[in-house]
């Protein structure tokens, strides 16, 4: 991680995240992300085995809801923001190789 991130890594991640980056943007973002990763690495260096990794800002666990049905949206409400609607369903471009 301390080696930073390569331009190819940034291009790969952008592709996975469906973000279209220009060459100029890749040139700019690669050193910026390297700085960010170096900052994170400093925190990682301080953390020792007796400090558990944190993924949440609040120290809570076991927050559950009862298994009870509550009203949701009507189909009209649910589909109101859809790019296109057909047969009361969201109509979207098909993705190659997608499972049923």
């Amino acid at each position: 991680m301390s080696d930073g991130i390569s331009r190819a890594d940034v291009a790969h991640l952008a592709n996975l995240a469906r973000i279209d980056l220009s060459d100029a943007e890749l040139d700019r973002l690669t050193p910026e992300l390297t700085v960010i990763l170096e900052s994170v690495a400093q925190v990682a260096a301080i953390a020792s085995a007796d400090v558990p990794p944190t993924s949440h800002a609040v120290p809570l666990s076991n927050v559950f809801r009862e298994d009870v049905v509550t009203p949701g949206l009507t189909p009209e409400q649910a589909l109101a923001g859809a790019p296109a609607v057909e047969q009361q369903r969201f109509a979207v471009p098909r993705i190659l190789g997608e499972d049923a």
Binding site: R89, F90, V92, P93
Partner: peptide, 9 residues
């Protein structure tokens, strides 16, 4: 050949 998908959530 399918050109779009209809999704039910």
């Amino acid at each position: 050949g399918a050109d779009h998908s209809l999704v039910d959530y």
